[in-house]
Nucleic acid binder design. Structure first.
Lengths: 358, 358
DNA sequence: AACCGAATTAAAAACGTTTTAGCTCCTGAC
DNA sequence: GTCAGGAGCTAAAACGTTTTTAATTCGGTT
């Protein structure tokens, strides 16, 4: 009943060979007779022998697991990229240690230490930055690290992200092509690189189109739905309302959608809304959010690949980056502005909804 | 540069004591002078000593990590319970190994084996059943196991779930109180215990109210949004349409909502929709789904607590269960049926939406 | 019959802890 | 002056692998 699992010694005794031979046989080393190898294999299966990964880890200094540090697994963006990571990591039969930091510096540090104690093979950090000391520790331990969505300040690690600039640019271009000239922007979390990127891209795009750079059109959010809600409310309280709202992520866009609904403002008839990320529920017919697609699963996939290559290969090669391409997904929350002067280019967009209240 | 991390021998040498003493000092054993203990502690911090968990794991036969087996992390229900688990596991500074099985038997088995090789302290299995052989293996290894949402066939493990029966009952009672008499049900995944429970509860409730038990009102789904969509379509194709649809989870309810929207059927004016789980986005003003709340985070929390207690305590005590209480969350997708005879009891519900199409 | 090289296998060391059993002082009691 | 006992420490074993090095076998050659 209580688990006395067989060791390599038991197996060796059972096969009448030495532990070394068993080890070699199971590892498919060339220096063992085919006959004995098969015997060992068979007996191993028979008694259900599996090597202790603690022992193996101790001997080899590895653990066949990789650490995945996320801020909040409950954010709908995150599970999709986790899924991408898991998929490729699984192929190498490595395990995934999930670390949810809640964006707390202290928890982050503690997790990093714990991961290092475990001698993880590598580490992926999602949408966060490790502080200098943690970074230093990871480097000192020689653990490969890839950062996702936020670049290391010193560009020292492998990186995968998305071309925020072109994503935002596509959104703005599209809105402008519909005839919008007052385009508001809901910023992401304060002091986060992706949020900064997106905001800068918004400013550049607005300027490129020679639009009114009214600073009151840019309001601060924090990537949460609530912040999107209040952002929309404050924008609608402006004397000169925007005709379109571009949010730095879908959650805020959805929050804005909710607020507009509450305010009795029609979307897209009165104001258009565009998100960023294309989370799963954005395509629900009742939400039907026009957005920029962030390839989430591919992001996880790329991060994991980069990591595995780094683990297997040379650690001194210069850091590599993978920058994925966003794409515009036109759904039902965008249309020409109310008193449309003249839609330029592009097809008129599917009108949103039929109105479910008659 | 490359990581030569200090061992306990280094630290011992540095402090001029034996490794045993260092170990004892760091573990706060009583048999070491306060003075030396402090010295060791100080020096340890100084050189950044951390015990190798491989070595410790080998010696102690534990790993300070727990395995969390889920079917699909991208299902919006899952991350919330993961969050609950992580929270309590983190308090004991254990790590979480995330195993995403995609509901594939083979992957599940492989993950279980891998977890056992790692000598995890315990294991949580979410919304799945391990097959008999896997179950046997974890029992043989003496690893505590708690199952969530699905009971082990032999009732041999700790369990946490929700009272599906009373949840469904609340929903049906509520719909009946609004005046509905033709209440459809969208079943969950075929051959899953929670789905069976919910369906059985639906049947019982319908019967208890003396309603028409028309079998064509029960349609098969698989917990996905798409299945909710097609379920609603087939229900609406019935010659005798239902006036309310109760779905075994929110995803299917949202799918139904989408289908009804496409079909130009008004919710809740023409038909009411009720979900189950209360996933995050269900409360979005545009979805505003009436649903049964499944306390997700509490579920994870309870599972983790049960597991930790089992790990710390007696493994031979009889298995325990925690059954959480669901609650009805009335939002905007429910109202009296079109040709309402007379609403019984209960307050008239907030009417859904103002219609966003004018 | 002795020897050699190749093919197999075995012995032993090492990985970094924790714990058991024992050792050395020291103090106080007789 | 001896002895008991406790405080503080240490030596050594053990955990289960993998790998390096050495030993053994076994044809075939001379």
């Amino acid at each position: 009943m209580s688990g006395v699992r067989p060791t390599i010694l038991d197996l060796a005794a059972l096969c009448g060979v030495s532990p070394a031979t068993v080890s070699n046989a199971l590892a498919d080393k060339p220096n063992v007779k085919a006959e004995t190898r098969d015997l060992v294999r068979r007996k191993a299966r028979e008694i259900g022998y599996h090597a202790s990964s603690a022992a193996r880890g101790l001997r080899l200094g590895r653990s066949w697991s990789i650490g995945l540090v996320v801020g909040d697994i409950a954010n709908p963006f995150v599970p999709d990229v986790v899924r991408g990571v898991e998929d490729v990591v699984w192929r190498e039969r490595k395990n995934l240690i999930l670390c949810n930091t809640d964006f707390q510096a202290e928890k982050k540090t503690a997790y990093v230490r714990s991961l290092l104690d475990k001698q993880i093979d590598g580490m992926i950090v999602l949408s966060q930055i490790l502080d200098a000391q943690d970074m230093e520790r990871v480097a000192a331990a020689g653990i490969p690290l890839v950062t996702v969505n936020r670049r290391a300040p010193d560009f020292s690690t492998d990186y995968v992200g998305i071309d925020n600039q072109s994503g935002v640019r596509m959104a703005v271009d599209y809105l402008v092509s519909l005839g919008h000239r007052r385009i508001a922007f809901v910023k992401g979390l304060f002091r986060s690189s992706s949020a900064d990127d997106r905001f800068a891209a918004y400013q550049a795009a607005v300027q490129a189109h020679g639009l009114d750079g009214d600073p009151s059109l840019a309001v601060q959010g924090d990537y949460s739905m609530e912040s999107g809600d209040s952002a929309a409310r404050s924008l609608m309280a402006l004397s000169q309302r925007p005709t379109a709202i571009l949010a730095a992520n879908d959650l805020m866009a959805l929050g804005a959608l909710g607020a507009l609904h509450d305010l009795g403002i029609r979307v897209p008839a009165d104001v258009s809304v565009v998100g960023f990320d294309n989370i799963q529920l954005a395509e629900h017919p009742l939400l039907n959010l026009t957005t920029i697609n962030h390839p989430k699963r591919e992001t996880g996939d790329a991060a994991a690949r980069l990591l595995l290559q780094r683990i297997a290969g040379d650690r001194n090669e210069p850091p590599r980056s993978v920058v994925l391409k966003p794409s515009l997904i036109v759904r039902g929350t965008t249309a020409p502005p109310p008193s449309t002067p003249k839609p330029r280019r592009r097809r008129p967009v599917t009108v949103r909804g039929t109105g479910d209240g008659g």
